Amino acid sequence: MDQDTAIAAFSALAHPTRIAVFRLLVRSAPQAVPALSIASRLDAKPSTLSGHLAILRRAGLIASTRHQREIRYEANLPSVNAMIGFLLSDCCGGQISHCQDILTMLGEETGA
């Protein structure tokens, strides 16, 4: 991920509703979540939520698919991985042993 793409992704997340949507979709991965379910779970107005979803989609953080009249959203996990890789690529001057706290946290999150 280049710097401009990373800035766009981080900017898209710089809003309480958008980061809540993103976190919900990451937790739900790899399952897609219907837009109305997202609105209900986050207690957000569907009309307002659609704008936030569009911003996240343009930043490449989420993807959408249409199933008849329903639109489902999912986290774009390769993009999420690229964003995390961008953040950590220079971490600790390449000394992975200095990143143990991060690795431990990721292991706890995934149950590893």
Results as ranks from 00 to 15, higher is better:
A14M: 15
G85R: 10
L77Q: 02
G60S: 14
Q3E: 07
E108I: 06
T104C: 06
I96G: 14
H15T: 08
I96F: 13
Q68F: 14
R72V: 14
P30M: 11
A75E: 00
R27S: 14
M83S: 09
C92P: 01
A9T: 08
P78K: 08
T48A: 06
I71A: 09
L24Y: 04
G51V: 10
F86Q: 00
C91K: 01
T110I: 12
A39C: 06
T5E: 00
S97L: 11
L24R: 10
G51K: 10
Q95E: 15
E74Y: 04
R69D: 09
G85A: 09
N76P: 11
C91G: 00
L87N: 02
T104N: 07
G94W: 08
L103C: 08
C91Y: 00
A32K: 08
L53N: 00
E74N: 09
A6W: 10
E108L: 04
I96M: 10
V80H: 03
K45E: 15
T5F: 02
R66Q: 10
M105G: 09
A12Q: 02
L13T: 05
I7K: 08
L88Y: 10
A59N: 00
S40P: 03
S47N: 09
D101E: 15
P78H: 04
T104S: 07
A6C: 08
P34K: 14
R57C: 04
I96S: 13
L25T: 01
D90L: 10
I19R: 05
Q68S: 14
A9K: 03
M105E: 08
N81V: 04
G93R: 04
L36V: 07
L25I: 04
A54T: 04
S28T: 08
S37T: 14
L24E: 04
V80F: 02
G60E: 00
F86H: 12
T104Q: 07
D4R: 02
L88R: 15
M105T: 02
E70T: 13
I38S: 00
N81Y: 06
R41C: 02
E74H: 07
A75W: 02
N76H: 14
L103P: 04
S37I: 05
P16L: 04
A75M: 04
D90T: 02
R58P: 11
D90N: 15
F86P: 10
V26L: 12
D2Q: 06
R27Q: 15
A82R: 09
S11R: 01
A82Q: 07
A39G: 07
L106C: 13
L49P: 07
M83E: 07
L77E: 01
C99Y: 00
R41F: 01
F10A: 13
L53Y: 08
S64G: 15
A35T: 11
Y73Q: 02
H98W: 09
G107L: 06
A59F: 04
S28N: 15
S97W: 13
G94S: 12
H52A: 00
S28H: 11
P46Y: 10
M105V: 09
A20T: 05
I19W: 03
A112F: 13
L77M: 11
F86L: 06
G85T: 11
R66C: 07
T5I: 00
A44C: 13
T65A: 09
L106Y: 14
V80E: 03
R57T: 05
T65K: 11
R57Q: 03
Q3C: 04
I84G: 11
E74W: 01
Y73R: 03
